[in-house]
């Protein structure tokens, strides 16, 4: 009973922290990016101000849009919100752990992606259509790569729920495995694509022909844009959580043991910070690639995922 109560509190804490902190993570990354470029950068709390400003503005609806125009941002946001709730952050063993199967999370990301794509097609103009077509193209390889990666995780952890994978990787002594190295490289490629970061898409891009994500949300304004932007922040945090949970599970707290929480929380913040630094340095040191090179990038990720599975076989027979 007490365990259930603690798990409940941990779950609520995780959800609240994620939802409140997502804009802060984006703010930190923007700041770090600016620093790396030698600029002063926007204030850390700028994303909050941005969202508040959008909320206060009147929402415009293009006259060529149908009645479902307001539905797509909400759909995308809800899917990403549920995914954020399901992916563990500072602790394992939350109440949402059982529902948080890796395949479900892939499905939720796909749901958010399709809602955004439909939002892009909604007004019926060239930019939205082009963005949606490209997003569809990227999704094809990204999803294949994610599923293949799951094989490696499932074989190592004997379970397919993200929570279970984290627990297994933390407790069982897996060691530094070649397979996990490959899997990490592949996962990072997919994560960068899915969150629209630099080698595949430019989050601060405003050149219509090169944009993917920005092109789809071009017609949105006011509270609908706030939903979409906030959804993007949640997605970034969710991906960081996912990578942190699977590849850096050390030091994660136990939901039922309240005394492990502070350490877990501190380490979680540390991991997020490290990932933010790595991401911003990577972003400023790379150029955006051509749209038709991205499938090659993701195709390499897919094949690396398969390599991870194959090499697991070599290692599995060792009995270590």
């Amino acid at each position: 009973m007490l365990g259930f109560a603690f798990a409940f509190i941990a779950t609520v804490l995780h959800i609240v922290l994620c939802f409140v902190g997502a804009p802060l993570v984006t703010g930190i990354i923007n700041k770090l990016r600016a620093w790396a470029l030698g600029r002063r950068g926007p204030p850390l709390l700028q994303p909050y101000l941005h969202l508040a400003r959008l909320l206060r503005k009147i929402t415009l609806v293009p006259d060529t849009a149908t009645d479902l125009f307001t539905f797509w941002p909400l759909g995308a946001f809800l899917a990403l919100a549920v995914a954020t709730m399901l992916i563990p952050g500072f602790t394992t063993g939350m109440l949402t752990a059982d529902a948080g199967d890796y395949v479900t999370i892939i499905g939720l990301f796909a749901l958010a992606r399709s809602a955004t794509m439909l939002g892009g097609l909604e007004t019926g103009f060239g930019f939205g259509g082009a963005g949606a077509a490209r997003e569809a193209l990227f999704g094809i390889f990204a999803e294949g790569a994610l599923l293949v990666l799951l094989l490696a995780f499932a074989l190592l952890a004997q379970t397919t729920s993200v929570d279970g994978i984290a627990t297994a990787f933390r407790t069982a002594h897996i060691g530094i495995s070649v397979s996990l190295g490959f899997a990490l490289a592949a996962m990072l490629a997919v994560a960068l694509t899915e969150t629209g970061r630099i080698p595949t898409d430019n989050p601060s891009g405003h050149l219509e022909l090169g944009m993917v994500h920005e092109a789809m949300v071009l017609e949105y304004s006011g509270r609908l844009l706030a939903l979409l932007d906030y959804g993007g922040m949640l997605r970034l945090l969710a991906w960081m959580n996912l990578i942190g949970t699977i590849f850096l599970p050390f030091g994660m707290a136990q939901a039922t043991e309240i005394f492990s929480w502070p350490g877990g929380l501190a380490l979680w913040a540390g991991k997020l910070l490290v990932m933010a630094v790595a991401l911003s340095i990577f972003e400023v040191s790379r150029a955006k690639m051509r749209v038709f090179r991205v499938p090659e990038f993701l195709g390499a990720a897919l094949l690396l995922g398969m390599l991870a599975g194959v090499f697991l076989f070599v290692a599995a027979r060792i009995g270590a």
């Binding site: 796909a110 794509m117 439909l118 909604e122 094809i140 990204a142 294949g144 799951l150 194959v310």
Partner: peptide
């Protein structure tokens, strides 16, 4: 079977693209 998984993932995403295209081009827009 890893290849099968990749095919299933790619097929799933292609089906998603087909469905989005069906709705987005047939029922949305101008």
């Amino acid at each position: 079977f890893s290849g099968l998984l990749a095919v299933l993932g790619i097929g799933g995403a292609l089906a998603l693209a087909a469905a989005v295209r069906l709705i987005g081009l047939g029922f949305l827009g101008r």
